[in-house]
């Protein structure tokens, strides 16, 4: 499944790297691309839920706009 998350609170390239690394480490995430304010994630819904992805991003201090 492909999902785009609109993220607020990102302000620099390090924010994008941090979010990408966090998502990449999660089991079930097949690929992800993060740019200013937007993360595009391809994941296996059987292994990980959309809610878990949002929680992981928010745990790093960002807000996912739903």
């Amino acid at each position: 499944m492909n999902k785009k998350f609109v993220i607020s609170g990102m302000h620099c390239p390090s924010c994008a790297i941090l979010i990408k690394e966090t998502l990449d480490e999660m089991e079930g995430v097949e690929s992800c691309a993060v740019e200013e304010g937007l993360a595009t994630v391809r994941f296996d819904e059987r292994k990980i839920s959309e809610k878990s992805l949002i929680s992981a991003i928010e745990a790093e201090g960002y807000k996912v706009n739903q």
Partner: peptide
């Protein structure tokens, strides 16, 4: 320079 930079390093 910022918190995100140090979070990357922490990880």
């Amino acid at each position: 320079e910022c918190d995100s930079c140090f979070r990357i390093l922490e990880k």
